[in-house]
Protein backbone atom coordinates (compact mmCIF):
# COMPACT_ATOMS: atom_id res chain seq x y z
CA UNK A 1 0.00 0.00 0.00
CA UNK A 2 1.37 3.36 -0.99
CA UNK A 3 1.70 6.32 1.33
CA UNK A 4 -1.35 8.04 -0.22
CA UNK A 5 -3.61 5.02 0.07
CA UNK A 6 -2.72 4.75 3.77
CA UNK A 7 -3.74 8.32 4.25
CA UNK A 8 -7.03 7.82 2.42
CA UNK A 9 -7.75 4.69 4.43
CA UNK A 10 -7.00 6.52 7.64
CA UNK A 11 -9.18 9.51 6.72
CA UNK A 12 -12.06 7.25 5.67
CA UNK A 13 -11.84 5.37 8.96
CA UNK A 14 -11.80 8.64 10.88
CA UNK A 15 -14.78 9.93 8.90
CA UNK A 16 -16.80 6.75 9.44
CA UNK A 17 -16.01 6.83 13.15
CA UNK A 18 -17.00 10.47 13.32
CA UNK A 19 -20.31 9.85 11.50
CA UNK A 20 -21.13 6.88 13.72
CA UNK A 21 -20.56 8.91 16.85
CA UNK A 22 -22.67 11.75 15.47
CA UNK A 23 -25.50 9.49 14.41
CA UNK A 24 -25.60 8.02 17.88
CA UNK A 25 -25.69 11.42 19.51
CA UNK A 26 -28.17 13.03 17.13
CA UNK A 27 -31.47 13.95 18.73
CA UNK A 28 -34.60 15.15 17.08
CA UNK A 29 -37.41 17.55 17.89
CA UNK A 30 -40.72 18.69 16.40
CA UNK A 31 -41.75 22.27 15.78
CA UNK A 32 -45.36 23.36 15.73
CA UNK A 33 -47.25 26.61 15.71
CA UNK A 34 -50.42 28.32 14.60
CA UNK A 35 -50.82 31.26 12.21
CA UNK A 36 -53.58 33.68 13.12
CA UNK A 37 -54.78 36.53 10.95
CA UNK A 38 -55.45 39.64 13.04
CA UNK A 39 -58.46 41.52 11.78
CA UNK A 40 -61.80 40.79 10.19
CA UNK A 41 -61.38 37.63 8.12
CA UNK A 42 -61.66 38.65 4.45
CA UNK A 43 -64.26 36.91 2.31
CA UNK A 44 -62.56 35.20 -0.62
CA UNK A 45 -63.71 36.61 -3.95
CA UNK A 46 -65.77 34.41 -6.25
CA UNK A 47 -63.90 33.54 -9.44
CA UNK A 48 -65.20 34.39 -12.87
CA UNK A 49 -65.44 31.11 -14.79
CA UNK A 50 -64.94 32.03 -18.43
CA UNK A 51 -63.83 28.70 -19.87
CA UNK A 52 -65.60 25.31 -19.85
CA UNK A 53 -68.45 26.62 -17.67
CA UNK A 54 -70.33 23.31 -18.04
CA UNK A 55 -67.57 21.53 -16.10
CA UNK A 56 -65.93 24.27 -14.03
CA UNK A 57 -68.98 26.42 -13.41
CA UNK A 58 -70.59 24.10 -10.88
CA UNK A 59 -67.82 24.20 -8.28
CA UNK A 60 -68.27 27.59 -6.57
CA UNK A 61 -64.61 28.42 -7.05
CA UNK A 62 -63.04 31.21 -4.99
CA UNK A 63 -59.73 33.04 -4.98
CA UNK A 64 -57.52 31.00 -2.63
CA UNK A 65 -54.76 33.59 -2.17
CA UNK A 66 -55.84 34.35 1.40
CA UNK A 67 -57.95 31.81 3.26
CA UNK A 68 -58.80 32.67 6.86
CA UNK A 69 -60.90 30.38 9.06
CA UNK A 70 -63.63 31.54 11.47
CA UNK A 71 -61.17 31.78 14.38
CA UNK A 72 -58.56 33.60 12.34
CA UNK A 73 -56.56 30.48 11.40
CA UNK A 74 -54.52 31.17 8.25
CA UNK A 75 -54.45 28.36 5.71
CA UNK A 76 -51.65 27.59 3.22
CA UNK A 77 -48.84 29.51 4.93
CA UNK A 78 -45.54 27.70 4.34
CA UNK A 79 -42.73 27.17 6.86
CA UNK A 80 -39.51 25.58 5.66
CA UNK A 81 -35.90 25.12 6.69
CA UNK A 82 -33.49 27.40 4.86
CA UNK A 83 -30.89 25.64 2.71
CA UNK A 84 -27.83 24.47 4.51
CA UNK A 85 -25.25 21.91 3.51
CA UNK A 86 -24.79 20.73 7.09
CA UNK A 87 -28.48 20.11 7.76
CA UNK A 88 -29.09 16.64 9.19
CA UNK A 89 -32.14 14.74 8.01
CA UNK A 90 -33.87 12.19 10.18
CA UNK A 91 -33.70 8.66 8.66
CA UNK A 92 -37.48 8.43 9.20
CA UNK A 93 -37.78 10.52 6.03
CA UNK A 94 -35.77 8.06 3.90
CA UNK A 95 -38.83 6.03 2.95
CA UNK A 96 -40.41 9.08 1.25
CA UNK A 97 -37.27 10.01 -0.63
CA UNK A 98 -38.32 8.62 -3.99
CA UNK A 99 -42.07 9.03 -3.50
CA UNK A 100 -44.43 10.31 -6.17
CA UNK A 101 -46.07 13.54 -5.08
CA UNK A 102 -49.43 14.25 -6.67
CA UNK A 103 -50.67 17.61 -7.85
CA UNK A 104 -54.21 17.13 -9.08
CA UNK A 105 -56.20 19.27 -11.48
CA UNK A 106 -59.50 18.64 -9.77
CA UNK A 107 -62.73 20.62 -9.93
CA UNK A 108 -60.86 23.20 -12.02
CA UNK A 109 -58.44 24.06 -9.23
CA UNK A 110 -55.09 22.70 -8.10
CA UNK A 111 -55.26 20.19 -5.26
CA UNK A 112 -53.43 20.85 -3.02
CA UNK A 113 -53.16 24.59 -3.51
CA UNK A 114 -49.60 24.60 -2.10
CA UNK A 115 -47.49 21.48 -2.59
CA UNK A 116 -44.07 20.86 -1.00
CA UNK A 117 -41.81 18.44 -2.87
CA UNK A 118 -38.24 17.23 -2.50
CA UNK A 119 -35.77 17.18 -5.38
CA UNK A 120 -35.45 13.39 -5.07
CA UNK A 121 -39.21 12.95 -5.45
CA UNK A 122 -41.25 12.89 -8.65
CA UNK A 123 -44.07 15.31 -9.28
CA UNK A 124 -47.09 13.58 -10.81
CA UNK A 125 -49.56 16.05 -12.28
CA UNK A 126 -52.99 14.47 -12.67
CA UNK A 127 -56.20 15.57 -14.27
CA UNK A 128 -59.28 14.26 -12.47
CA UNK A 129 -61.75 16.52 -14.27
CA UNK A 130 -64.14 14.81 -16.65
CA UNK A 131 -63.79 15.48 -20.40
CA UNK A 132 -61.56 18.56 -20.26
CA UNK A 133 -57.82 18.99 -20.68
CA UNK A 134 -55.67 21.10 -18.42
CA UNK A 135 -52.13 22.36 -18.80
CA UNK A 136 -49.80 22.91 -15.86
CA UNK A 137 -47.30 25.65 -16.47
CA UNK A 138 -44.42 25.99 -14.02
CA UNK A 139 -41.12 27.74 -14.74
CA UNK A 140 -38.97 27.63 -11.62
CA UNK A 141 -36.07 30.05 -11.33
CA UNK A 142 -32.83 28.59 -12.68
CA UNK A 143 -34.43 25.23 -13.44
CA UNK A 144 -36.06 23.63 -16.49
CA UNK A 145 -39.61 24.80 -17.13
CA UNK A 146 -42.46 22.44 -17.89
CA UNK A 147 -45.93 22.93 -19.31
CA UNK A 148 -47.57 19.61 -20.22
CA UNK A 149 -51.01 19.31 -21.77
CA UNK A 150 -52.92 16.78 -19.64
CA UNK A 151 -56.11 15.33 -21.14
CA UNK A 152 -58.86 14.00 -18.87
CA UNK A 153 -57.68 11.08 -16.68
CA UNK A 154 -54.12 11.66 -17.88
CA UNK A 155 -51.02 12.28 -15.83
CA UNK A 156 -47.63 13.83 -16.50
CA UNK A 157 -44.40 13.51 -14.55
CA UNK A 158 -41.73 16.04 -13.80
CA UNK A 159 -38.72 16.30 -11.52
CA UNK A 160 -37.10 19.45 -10.21
CA UNK A 161 -33.33 19.84 -10.28
CA UNK A 162 -32.97 22.91 -8.12
CA UNK A 163 -34.26 23.80 -4.66
CA UNK A 164 -36.25 27.03 -4.64
CA UNK A 165 -36.08 29.74 -2.00
CA UNK A 166 -39.63 30.80 -2.66
CA UNK A 167 -42.69 28.76 -3.67
CA UNK A 168 -43.11 28.71 -7.44
CA UNK A 169 -46.47 29.41 -9.12
CA UNK A 170 -48.19 26.77 -11.23
CA UNK A 171 -50.85 27.95 -13.61
CA UNK A 172 -53.23 26.50 -16.16
CA UNK A 173 -53.44 28.74 -19.22
CA UNK A 174 -56.56 27.05 -20.56
CA UNK A 175 -58.40 27.96 -17.34
CA UNK A 176 -56.66 31.18 -16.39
CA UNK A 177 -58.11 31.47 -12.88
CA UNK A 178 -56.29 28.30 -11.83
CA UNK A 179 -53.26 29.03 -9.69
CA UNK A 180 -51.29 26.91 -7.29
CA UNK A 181 -47.78 26.66 -5.85
CA UNK A 182 -45.06 24.05 -5.67
CA UNK A 183 -42.21 24.25 -3.16
CA UNK A 184 -39.24 22.24 -4.50
CA UNK A 185 -36.77 21.77 -1.62
CA UNK A 186 -33.57 19.84 -1.02
CA UNK A 187 -34.83 18.62 2.39
CA UNK A 188 -38.08 17.20 3.75
CA UNK A 189 -38.64 19.91 6.36
CA UNK A 190 -41.49 21.88 4.80
CA UNK A 191 -44.92 22.38 6.34
CA UNK A 192 -48.06 24.01 4.97
CA UNK A 193 -50.56 25.32 7.50
CA UNK A 194 -53.93 23.59 7.74
CA UNK A 195 -57.35 25.26 7.60
CA UNK A 196 -57.13 26.18 11.30
CA UNK A 197 -53.69 27.78 10.81
CA UNK A 198 -51.71 25.02 12.55
CA UNK A 199 -48.57 23.42 11.18
CA UNK A 200 -45.96 20.97 12.40
CA UNK A 201 -42.52 19.96 11.13
CA UNK A 202 -41.43 16.65 12.58
CA UNK A 203 -38.02 15.22 13.46
CA UNK A 204 -35.87 18.30 13.06
CA UNK A 205 -32.23 18.04 14.15
CA UNK A 206 -31.73 19.42 17.65
CA UNK A 207 -29.90 22.75 17.78
CA UNK A 208 -30.22 26.06 15.97
CA UNK A 209 -32.16 25.77 12.73
CA UNK A 210 -32.92 28.62 10.28
CA UNK A 211 -36.48 28.81 9.03
CA UNK A 212 -38.32 30.73 6.34
CA UNK A 213 -42.04 31.56 6.39
CA UNK A 214 -44.08 32.52 3.34
CA UNK A 215 -47.66 33.07 2.33
CA UNK A 216 -49.08 33.64 -1.15
CA UNK A 217 -50.57 37.07 -0.53
CA UNK A 218 -47.85 38.51 1.71
CA UNK A 219 -44.81 36.84 0.16
CA UNK A 220 -42.26 36.31 2.96
CA UNK A 221 -44.08 36.70 6.29
CA UNK A 222 -42.04 39.80 7.03
CA UNK A 223 -42.76 40.82 10.63
CA UNK A 224 -40.71 42.63 13.27
CA UNK A 225 -39.76 39.35 14.89
CA UNK A 226 -39.14 37.66 11.53
CA UNK A 227 -37.37 40.07 9.16
CA UNK A 228 -37.86 38.83 5.56
CA UNK A 229 -39.88 35.99 7.05
CA UNK A 230 -36.72 34.42 8.49
CA UNK A 231 -36.25 33.16 12.03
CA UNK A 232 -33.88 30.91 13.93
CA UNK A 233 -35.16 28.45 16.49
CA UNK A 234 -33.18 26.42 18.94
CA UNK A 235 -34.82 23.02 18.55
CA UNK A 236 -34.93 20.97 21.76
CA UNK A 237 -35.54 17.22 21.85
CA UNK A 238 -39.26 16.43 21.80
CA UNK A 239 -41.95 19.01 21.11
CA UNK A 240 -41.25 22.69 20.49
CA UNK A 241 -44.15 25.11 20.25
CA UNK A 242 -44.01 28.52 18.57
CA UNK A 243 -47.49 29.15 19.98
CA UNK A 244 -49.82 31.50 18.18
CA UNK A 245 -48.14 33.63 15.55
CA UNK A 246 -50.23 36.74 15.09
CA UNK A 247 -50.08 38.31 11.64
CA UNK A 248 -51.45 41.83 11.20
CA UNK A 249 -53.93 42.28 8.34
CA UNK A 250 -51.65 44.98 6.85
CA UNK A 251 -49.14 42.25 5.95
CA UNK A 252 -51.58 40.92 3.36
CA UNK A 253 -52.56 44.22 1.77
CA UNK A 254 -50.07 43.69 -0.98
Amino acid sequence: MSHVSYRIAFLTAALVACLTVNAGAQQWGNLKGKFVYEGTPPKPAKLNITKDPEVCGKHDLVDEALLVGPNGGLKNAVVYVRSSKTLKVNPEYDKDKAAEIVLDNKNCRFEPHVLPIQLTQTLVIKNSDPNISHNSNVSPLGDAATNPLIPAAGEAKHSFKRAQTIPQPVSCNIHPWMKGYVVPRDNPYTAVSAADGTFEIKNLPVGKVDFQAWQEKSGYLDTKAWPKGRFTYDIKPGDNDLGTIKLPASLFNK
Partner: peptide, 11 residues
Amino acid sequence: PQGGANASNPS
Protein backbone atom coordinates in the same frame (compact mmCIF):
# COMPACT_ATOMS: atom_id res chain seq x y z
CA PRO B 1 -48.21 23.71 -23.71
CA GLN B 2 -46.27 20.61 -24.59
CA GLY B 3 -49.06 18.76 -26.39
CA GLY B 4 -47.43 15.51 -27.51
CA ALA B 5 -47.39 12.24 -25.63
CA ASN B 6 -44.00 11.11 -24.36
CA ALA B 7 -42.55 9.04 -21.54
CA SER B 8 -43.32 11.67 -18.90
CA ASN B 9 -46.78 12.48 -20.26
CA PRO B 10 -48.16 9.31 -21.91
CA SER B 11 -51.69 10.72 -22.06
